[in-house]
Structures are given as C-alpha cells and as structure tokens.
Design a protein around this nucleic acid. Structure first.
Length: 423
RNA sequence: GUGGGUGUAGCUCAGUUGGCUAGAGCGCCAGAUUGUGGUUCUGGAUGUCGCGGGUUCAACUCCCGUCACUCACCCCA
C-alpha cells in the first residue's frame, strides 16, 4: 500500500490554497489594524504546560493530547490550543514589563487526537488573539469584534454571536452550588453523560443537547441571573459596546466553555451550515490563568477561530488570482533569448507561466486559457527577428505587437494592483 | 472511546437474484493541412472493483476481519 496522510490530517492542495492565503491575509491585516503583533511559538511544548492551563479534567488534556517522550525522556505534547503557549511566552519573556496591554496574535496548526468529523480533524488550524495585562471590558468587546470581523470580511454571512458570563472566583462557585442543589433530586432524569458531569464539570450540564437534560435545566437557576454585581456590570458593558459596533448578538444563559481557565465574559460565534461542529470562533476572559501559571496576577482576554471551518463556509467562493501571463514560443526550442526574456518578466514580478515543451501554438494557448492567464505572450521567429512579441488578451481575443524591451512596463500597466479576486 | 453510512478509472457515479474480455459522464491526451485558446466533431489512454481471508465450479456482487472516508455522540475552534 502506498503511504497516505495520517488519519484526521489532509493536504491543503494548490487548488485550495488561494482561499487559505486570502483568509490569512485578511486576518493579518485586520489584527494588525487592531494593533496586535504576531507571535510564533513552537508547535510542541512540555506536556505539563497544557495540563496546568487547559486543565487535567478536560478531555483535551486527558484523552486528546498527542504526548510523546523525546530521547532524553522529556514529556512533550503537540499543542492542542494556543492560549497556553502564549501565556507561557508572556511569563517567560517578562512581557509584563512592556507597555500594557500586550496584544498578540497567532495563526497555525494545532493537534488533538479526536474522531474526525465534519469541521473536526486531528491537525487543524486556528487564528487567534490575546490581549494581556489590562482589565477593561473594551478589550472584551474588541476581541469579539475581531472574531466577528475576520469571517465577515471574508464574506461569510449569517453568523450567530452568543454571549454569556460564567462569573468570577466569587460568584461562580456559589452558582455551581445552587445548580447542584437544583439538580440533586433530578439526577436520575439526566442522561448518562450529565450524571458524570454532575461530579466532574457541572456547568457543562447547561449546554447538553439531550431533551431530558434541557427539560431539567430549564426551570433551574441560570448563571447569567446569578452573577455578582461586578460580573453583571461587566457583561452589560460589553453588550453596550458591541451594540455600538452593530454586532448582532444574543445572550445565551446556557453557554459555557470547555477549558478550565475561562472566567467572566465568554462568547461563541456559530454558523448553521457547519453541521454539528458549528463553532466558527470562541473565546473569553481568563483573568486567573497567568497567575496560576506562575506569573504575577494579570488579566487577559482572547479568542480563537477555526480556519478549516471558515474555509468550509467559503468552499463555493473562488479566491484564485488571475494576474498571470503565459509565454508561448514556437518555431525553435526555447533559446537563450527567450529564456532570458522569461527571466526578465519574472524578475519584474510578473507571474509568468510557460510550457517548457515544444508544443503547437494552439496547445500552448489552450494551456494559457486553462490556467486562467489574462494575457498570452506569443514569441515566434518573426517576432524574435524584429525584437517584438505579441501580447494577446485572452478574454477579448485581441492582440497587439509590442517591443520586447517595453514588455515589462506595458504588462505591468495592464494589471491593477495584484490581489485576490472577490475581495 | 461509542454508533450509523460508504469504499468500482484523476473526479462523480452505474454495475440487475453471484456467471463471459468491468461501464457511463466529466476530465485528460491526440487529431480535424501550413503560427492563435475556451464551442463542436473524431479517435485514444487509464482500473491489483480499499486491503486480507472465507464460502463457491465461479465473487465487484455473499460472509468474517481490517483499514480508510463520512456523519453523529463524547469533546471542542
């Protein structure tokens, strides 16, 4: 058997890579406009980093992490998410001494050993951002804004923004007690998973999809109406700000987050065309994490968006650039003058295709048309003698004969600024 | 980790109750006279029928196993 990609991984082929590049470009431009700087951390870290930050109790750490030992016996893990590494880096490089907030973003691959499904693979990519060091709800609003803007700028519509707060160190434990009290007599009505959650992660019972659980949770207390005054005020302020930004959202009292480090305002952005894994982006505040990881007490807020999931929503769109020309030559094998002309075009940034094969002109034009070239350059013995070349517009099927020496400037004028179609 | 569906040419699929050299469309390649593409016409190439085993005179078709894909649960971006 020939070797294939590992389960849950896939090649991003040239035919799809334009969409990826467009998405990355849009993300970078946007994040940098919001004053975030890119950070690139290693794809593997000490396994303990994730155990401490993401939480031993989560499935991500307990079951889904790619853990391995290196030759010195160090326990390492492929990163299952982005925030932990950034927090590690923030502490390691004493970033608290910089002007706060420190605003960072990342784009890259992550790894979780899960059963593949629509919108879920073992290697997947996220774009995310973190604003660290200032506790201000405007940063929460800004993070939500960016998380909405990235897919929106790509032309993804009908995003659903859901907002909630899971409280702070003070009010969350109180609420959990209340919730457990409410469910105490109803445990036997809950599904098997929620019976387990009752002891491991009670908040998760809130977002169970099973009708019997929804039924029992419905008449119980919600975290949203049991927040302390401070948390309630923060949630309301975030609402006010994103309203000003015209972000259409709704409060979802049963929205909770899976990772242990979240505190306060959290959010999820979903899309109905994605299937069961419908979260495009999600995030929230994690004010205790940095202290918990050995730094000084530092508030922070961030989000991550699933790139594959956005790509799925863009599948019908074409981001292919057609800013290329095709050099067709004939009557002779590609001699030095043609080869030099080709190099000259390319050295001047003109995306130039050619066949490298002695094919008929017909054939070469066919190639040019197939690969979506805007112009063909036709260079035969006649032209070469005169020092000219034929510039053929593939769309209008009109052509003109120009001097080879002027070709670069003339072609460059024909192209507006390079970029992606449909943006 | 659990459950359902699927696995036949590069792609999308057909293949009758097991029976001759396994098919279609699209794509690909080549031609329709001399240096001009996307239409049309003609011709052509391509398959260990996912892999391994079993039943049978005979298996793409039945049975078992396995791997992969896919969808859902779990979990999460």
């Amino acid at each position: 058997m020939v070797v294939k990609t590992v389960r849950g991984t896939s090649d991003i082929l040239p035919c799809n890579v334009d969409t990826w590049q467009a998405l990355e470009l849009v993300s970078r431009n946007l994040l940098e406009a919001y004053d975030y700087k890119e950070i690139r951390t290693p794809v593997f870290e000490q396994a303990g980093l994730f155990q401490k930050s993401v939480g031993e109790s989560t499935d991500i750490v307990s079951k889904e992490m790619y853990v391995f030992s290196d030759k010195k016996g160090r326990e390492l893990a492929l990163r299952p998410e982005g925030t932990a590494s950034i927090v590690r880096s923030f502490i390691e490089h004493n970033m608290h001494t910089q002007t706060l907030p420190v605003k960072l973003y990342y784009i890259g691959p992550f790894f979780r050993y899960e059963r593949p499904q629509a919108g879920r693979t073992r290697q997947f990519h996220q774009v995310g951002a973190e604003a660290i060091g200032v506790e201000d709800v405007r940063l929460d609003a800004e993070i939500i804004d960016i998380a909405v803007q990235i897919p929106s700028k790509m032309g993804i519509k009908n995003l659903k923004v859901m907002l909630n707060s899971i409280g702070c160190k003070e009010c969350r434990p109180k609420y959990i007690k209340q919730l457990l009290g409410h469910l105490k007599n109803k445990i036997k009505n809950l599904c098997a998973d929620c019976n387990r959650r009752y002891s491991t992660n009670p908040l998760r019972i809130l977002d169970c999809k099973k009708p019997e659980c929804i039924q029992n949770v419905k008449d119980g207390p919600t975290i949203t109406e049991n927040l302390c005054a401070k948390c309630r005020n923060k949630l309301e302020t975030v609402e006010r700000y994103i309203k000003y930004l015209d972000i259409d959202y709704q409060i979802q009292p049963y929205l909770v987050r899976g990772l242990d480090y979240y505190t306060g305002v959290i959010f999820e952005i979903t899309h109905s065309q994605l299937g069961a894994q419908n979260v495009v982006a999600a995030g929230g505040r994690y004010d205790n994490l940095i202290e918990q990881m050995g730094g000084r007490p530092t508030p922070a807020v961030g989000f991550a968006a699933g790139i594959e999931r956005m790509i799925m929503l863009l599948a019908h769109r074409n981001f292919q650039s057609n800013n290329s020309v095709c050099l067709a030559y004939l009557d002779f094998s590609m001699d030095e003058r043609v080869f030099k002309f080709l190099a000259e075009l390319r050295q001047n940034g003109i995306h130039t295709k050619t066949t490298y094969q002695e094919k008929t002109l017909k054939n070469q034009l066919k190639t040019a048309a197939k690969s979506n070239c805007k112009f063909s350059l036709i260079l035969g013995a006649n032209e070469l003698l005169k020092g000219t070349v034929i510039l053929r517009n593939m769309k209008t099927s009109t052509q003109e004969e120009i001097m080879m020496d002027n070709a670069v400037t003339i072609i460059k004028k024909k192209f507006p600024l390079g970029g992606f179609r449909g943006m």
